[in-house]
């Protein structure tokens, strides 16, 4: 077990360094973008004096390196800074980035978790069944359906679902505009279509990888031994093949989970779901640097952590990796 702990600590340390590098890259790229917050907020009505007044107040007239150091200094002690945009219902005249991100992040995680709870077991079961009955009619139908849904752009899937399941047949909500005081069950009902969309676009990859990993193992000698011994096919796959197939499957699941957290902005826009993706897009278009940085760090951390979990699953399920010689 010690070996795993050391690996985890090492990887976490590397992760922190990665986050630091990401924040530098984001800052640098951001400086290359034309315009700044003042000009984006005032748009066509910007005059040099009002822009200057904005820049003075938000400290945008300071050199980029100074602004970055001030920001990263805050992050180290857990302060993600304040959004450049003014106050609102959040009280006071400031909008802390953490307060802005928290409700959006929890919405996104809720959507991602619900989609994952449906998609991951579904993909695993379909993958196992497809492997078990490979080259049968069932296998072909499952493959064709999932490959079709993944080959269709997600916004198109979203519109089609909305057209048939919300407009033609009024079963579901067309808008998923939840707020912090939406009751849990209504929240679930409102995100039904977004979840269905995400399930359709993620199942294929996980299901295909499960199927491929297991079929790959079915050619190995120990499976042949089991088969000769007269073990039923179902038992072979679940008890003998699957434990050895976890590593590639876990990797694909981790990638898809990361996608569910960071890559669903299009689904959010189509269903007007207030997730973190929309927040980041708004912040980028308004050049609201602290919010962009906050979102970027969360996205990067999501990838790092999920990859770490996938690797640990691979190690734990493979005793050879647990005791490296």
């Amino acid at each position: 077990m010690n070996a795993i702990l050391v690996t985890v600590l090492k990887r976490l340390g590397l992760g922190v360094i990665t986050l630091f590098v990401v924040s530098i890259i984001i800052s640098f790229v951001f400086e290359l973008l034309p315009g700044d917050f003042a000009k984006a907020i005032l748009g066509q009505s910007a005059t040099p004096e009002t822009v200057a007044a904005f820049q003075r107040e938000k400290g945008l007239d300071r050199p980029p390196v100074e602004r970055y150091l001030k920001w990263i200094g805050g992050v180290v002690v857990g302060d993600f800074g304040e959004s450049y945009s003014g106050a609102g219902s959040l009280g006071g005249s400031k909008r802390p980035v953490a307060k802005l991100i928290a409700p959006r992040l929890s919405n996104t995680l809720f959507l991602a978790a619900t989609a994952a709870i449906v998609a991951v077991p579904l993909a695993l079961v379909l993958g196992l069944l497809a492997a078990l009955y490979r080259n049968s009619l069932f296998d072909r139908v499952v493959n064709v359906v999932t490959l079709t849904s993944i080959s269709t752009p997600e916004f198109f899937v979203a519109y089609i679902l909305m057209l048939f399941l919300a407009v033609k047949l009024p079963w579901f909500y067309a808008l998923a505009n939840v707020s912090s005081d939406t009751p849990f069950l209504e929240h679930l009902a409102r995100i039904a279509l977004p979840v269905l969309t995400l399930v359709l676009v993620t199942v294929a990859q996980m299901m295909r990888m499960t199927r491929a990993a297991i079929i790959n193992l079915l050619a190995s000698p120990y499976i042949e031994m089991a088969r000769l011994k007269g073990v039923p096919p179902r038992r072979i796959i679940v008890h003998h093949a699957l434990p050895n197939a976890w590593a590639p499957i876990a990797n694909v699941i981790a990638l898809n989970l990361a996608y569910l957290v960071v890559g669903v902005v299009i689904v959010e826009v189509v269903f007007t779901y207030p997730g973190i993706g929309q927040l980041m897009v708004d912040a980028v278009s308004k050049r609201d640097m602290p919010v962009v940085q906050g979102c970027a760090l969360i996205f990067a951390a999501t990838y790092i952590l999920l990859n770490l979990v996938a690797d640990i699953v691979a190690i734990v399920t493979n005793p050879r990796l647990l005791h490296p010689r």
């Binding site: 519109y159 909305m162 057209l163 919300a166 407009v167 009024p170 909500y173 067309a174 808008l175 505009n177 826009v269 189509v270 269903f271 007007t272």
Partner: peptide, 19 residues
């Protein structure tokens, strides 16, 4: 007052009676 940036979503929400 709900912000719905997507054209199709806005039209659909009107048709379904949500707006």
């Amino acid at each position: 007052v709900v912000s719905v940036a997507d054209n199709a979503a806005r039209m659909n929400a009107l048709i379904t009676g949500e707006l």
